[in-house]
Amino acid sequence: MHMHRRASTLPVHIFVFLAPATLVYTLFMTYPLLDSLRLSLYAIEPTGVERFVGLKNYIDLLTSPDYAPRFWGALRNNIVFFVIHMVVQNSIGLLLATLLTTKGRGRTFYRTVIFMPTVLSFVIVGFIWNLILSPLWGVTEGVLKSIGLGHLFRPWLGLESSALITISLISVWQFVGIPMVLFYAALIGIPEEVIEAARVDGATSWHIFWRIKFPLILPTVGVVGILTFVGNFNAFDLVYTIKGALAGPNFSTDLMGTLFYRTFFGQQLQLGNPTLGAAVAGMMFIIILSGVLAYMFIWQRRIRPTEL
């Protein structure tokens, strides 16, 4: 009990409590991440020797005729993918959340059903929609015909012009429940008196929403935004399931995640290149980290005063 214990050393029990989590997390999360960033500065020679090449891999990705078109293509597609989620998924989520807060029957039922697809895996969702949209099966065409819009049907997933938008909307279909429940939780957290006071002042529902409720849920808008950003720039599974690693047609659905996988493991004619793959992951790291830092230091600081 009464051993020498200097104030600066960690008491044994604190060490015991922290050690397992810190050890597993460091070995399998932070160490690989940092080591992967280190590897992105190397090239592997045909002999298997690693040679330090500085930023060459990154410069290749950005400028070389072999890699740059794929990199910029994947980045552009990923931005489109993200913008569609921000605009479509999060607006629908907000609309549904607002409707869920109105009084009426079946609100819990609706919420439960709409949230359901978020628990399914990308693999299941990807294949389900592959079948539903398949011209072979004709389910979507049948539905469109029944409302007189049969002529609008196209094999959207197969066309270069529409494949990316279609995959983005499938992902929106799957995840709209997340912004919905987050916005819902924020909306029901607004004190009733605030809204009542505005109503008494003669404000319409439209005004109450945009002038009072929306500013009050801005912190949640930020959370939804950053969750969407991180999730989207890390996406891989859905495109891989529907289109495979080549992200066709003609790379039109290629995202940073599929580019990372292809570069690392190789594809039909090209051998995998681990260090160049690490550089793609490094790019994703830079993008995601910038988003997170912007959220923490710009968005959170700016909106703090209006937080509930």
Binding site: P32, L33, S36, L39, V230, F260, P274, G277, F285
Partner: peptide, 24 residues
């Protein structure tokens, strides 16, 4: 600092370290 260190993984996906993780 320990709390901050352990929180980084909330936002940074573990997937990004895959190349080294596979070697390890």
């Amino acid at each position: 600092w320990v709390a901050l260190y352990l929180a980084i993984g909330i936002m940074i996906p573990i997937r990004l370290g895959t190349v080294s993780l596979l070697r390890f």
